[in-house]
Computed example of a mutant assay.
Amino acid sequence: MGKNKLKKFADMATYHCVFQFPWNVLDSGECPMRGKWRSDYFHNDNPLVLELGCGKGEYAVGLGQRFPHKNYIGVDIKGARMWTGAKMVEEQGMPNVAFLRTSIEIIDRMFAPGEVSEIWITFPDPQMRKVNKRLTSTRFLANYRKILTDGGIVHLKTDSPFLYTYTHALVELNGLPVDIDTADLYHSGLADDILEIKTHYEKQWLERGLTIKYIKFHLPQAGELQEPDIEIPHDTYRSYNRGYIEMPQHLQPGDAEAPHD
């Protein structure tokens, strides 16, 4: 492990806004903060919003700056990335933003039923080969139901035509109420101050001429969720390893566009 990473981990251990629980604590039961985030950390009853797979935490911080009357928690397993947003929160003294280092797969151990109002999923790995690892799959949506208020909001912002098409089909199949659904956010006229917050990955995709897709839908508690049975072309502009990004010359005409209905 590089010295820079070690320093970031050391910094994180001192940050008031960062929560990291040893695995033996979580393995033996629930997170000590479960059901207590607003009372014990934020000290208010404001709505709680999560950014899942927050990376550097750009959305959690950006939203926190814009909406001081909501509470935000960025969630990711990689602490070295999260350090960027956490450092900003500490330096600016932002009382409504925190970070939680954990696996999204056990998110229901971290938050109590109905404790969360909204979930943001920003530029996740599309997991084209593994359905049950997609953050908008029925497996994960079932877990989100355990912590969201009834009809709570889920936002997906992605560069991936594959993940956008998959999520669009899943939402349509299950009749989930949709507020916004666009395959080209920045040419749709729908981008506002919130949606124009740009993550590290998003800036890279935009520089390569790719379009950004966005879906905002509600997740009711009732109803059995079903997976869509459709064939979706794989994204061609990057490998399956999220860490590697191919250059623009690998793009073919139309590759950056999501299939339309």
Score class of each variant (00 low, 15 high):
residue 50 L to C: 03
residue 55 G to V: 07
residue 34 R to K: 15
residue 78 K to F: 09
residue 133 K to T: 14
residue 33 M to I: 05
residue 109 R to Y: 07
residue 126 P to G: 06
residue 107 I to D: 02
residue 60 A to N: 05
residue 105 E to N: 08
residue 54 C to A: 07
residue 42 F to W: 07
residue 37 W to K: 03
residue 48 L to Y: 07
residue 113 P to T: 05
residue 104 I to A: 01
residue 81 R to M: 11
residue 32 P to S: 05
residue 39 S to P: 00
residue 125 D to H: 15
residue 44 N to G: 14
residue 103 S to W: 01
residue 100 L to C: 11
residue 48 L to N: 01
residue 97 V to P: 01
residue 89 V to F: 12
residue 61 V to N: 03
residue 106 I to T: 09
residue 60 A to M: 00
residue 121 I to K: 03
residue 62 G to K: 12
residue 130 K to Q: 14
residue 39 S to Y: 09
residue 82 M to S: 06
residue 115 E to K: 02
residue 62 G to C: 06
residue 94 M to Y: 05
residue 40 D to Q: 15
residue 51 E to C: 05
residue 95 P to Q: 08
residue 76 D to R: 07
residue 42 F to S: 02
residue 122 T to I: 14
residue 106 I to F: 10
residue 123 F to E: 13
residue 57 G to Q: 05
residue 50 L to D: 04
residue 114 G to W: 00
residue 131 V to W: 11
residue 34 R to A: 07
residue 90 E to S: 13
residue 58 E to Y: 07
residue 113 P to G: 00
residue 68 P to D: 06
residue 117 S to I: 04
residue 98 A to I: 10
residue 61 V to G: 03
residue 79 G to T: 06
residue 123 F to C: 11
residue 32 P to K: 04
residue 133 K to R: 15
residue 86 A to W: 01
residue 32 P to R: 02
residue 92 Q to K: 13
residue 86 A to Y: 02
residue 131 V to M: 12
residue 63 L to M: 10
residue 88 M to T: 14
residue 117 S to Y: 02
residue 43 H to L: 13
residue 48 L to F: 06
residue 102 T to Y: 09
residue 45 D to H: 11
residue 71 N to F: 02
residue 74 G to D: 12
residue 58 E to P: 06
residue 37 W to A: 06
residue 78 K to M: 10
residue 134 R to K: 14
residue 98 A to H: 11
residue 98 A to K: 08
residue 106 I to R: 04
residue 34 R to E: 01
residue 110 M to T: 04
residue 86 A to C: 05
residue 54 C to L: 11
residue 48 L to I: 07
residue 62 G to Q: 08
residue 105 E to V: 10
residue 33 M to V: 04
residue 50 L to E: 04
residue 132 N to Q: 14
residue 79 G to W: 04
residue 80 A to K: 08
residue 62 G to P: 08
residue 71 N to E: 09
residue 53 G to A: 04
residue 70 K to F: 02
residue 34 R to G: 00
residue 63 L to S: 00
residue 74 G to A: 12
residue 61 V to T: 02
residue 66 R to E: 08
residue 77 I to F: 10
residue 49 V to Q: 00
residue 107 I to Q: 02
residue 36 K to L: 15
residue 35 G to Y: 09
residue 99 F to S: 07
residue 117 S to H: 13
residue 127 Q to K: 12
residue 48 L to Q: 01
residue 43 H to K: 06
residue 93 G to R: 10
residue 108 D to F: 00
residue 72 Y to K: 13
residue 41 Y to H: 13
residue 107 I to G: 08
residue 93 G to D: 07
residue 81 R to C: 10
residue 100 L to P: 10
residue 119 I to Q: 12
residue 34 R to H: 01
